[in-house]
Amino acid sequence: MEMTKGLLAILLTAILTNNYILAKFLGICPFLGVSKKLSTATGMSAAVIFVMALATAVTYPINKFLLVQFDLEYLQTIVFILVIAALVQLVEIILKKYMPALYNALGIYLPLITTNCAVLGVVILNIDSGYNFAESMFNSVGAGLGFMLAMVMFSGIRERMESNDIPKFLQGLPITLIAASLVAVSFLGFTGIVENIFG
């Protein structure tokens, strides 16, 4: 019971209070780049959830059984990038062969996020927080879901902004950044909510 409670707390924290985009400011490039339409935002988010879970599942044992054994924790960044990139390429090849529908749905986003900072951030923060394997998995799936929440919300806002009469000097990226900051501020409202539920 205590354990499921802990795992749920980790999941909710990653989605709401410690949202990787809006609280930790990781993965901003896809957040601004592909949030223009709802369909691309959901496709990208699905790929991110998938890659985050996969990356955690692979990098956790590599860290524990290889890097820690040889006292090489300082190589985490470079090894993880290498492994994640190779892994995603492998998954892409396999998907193309056996699940062309899913491959087409994820499309360009899968190779795009191999070296995304949010993906690398999740696996490194998992280790820094001292999570065990189950906790790491929940945290990375939660981070992916949080990414999806932020992307879907923001794409809705951007679709509405498209049809508004925005002053010329704010058109394009400036108004997008202002809107992003307001969404980030609104997520501050979740502070403490998870601790109160599970406290």
């Binding site: 590599i62 290889l66 040889f70 090489l72 190589l75 470079i78 090894v79 290498l82 492994v83 190779a86 892994l87 390429q89 492998l90 090849i93 396999i94 193309k96 062969k97 056996y98």
Partner: peptide, 27 residues
């Protein structure tokens, strides 16, 4: 030496794995 060997080995395994996969799963 050890870190160099380990990183090189991981890179080599990943590269070989991809090369084999691209042949095995070739479309």
């Amino acid at each position: 030496l050890i870190p160099v060997i380990i990183v090189a080995a991981i890179g080599l395994i990943a590269g070989l794995g991809l090369a084999i996969a691209s042949i095995v799963f070739a479309m």
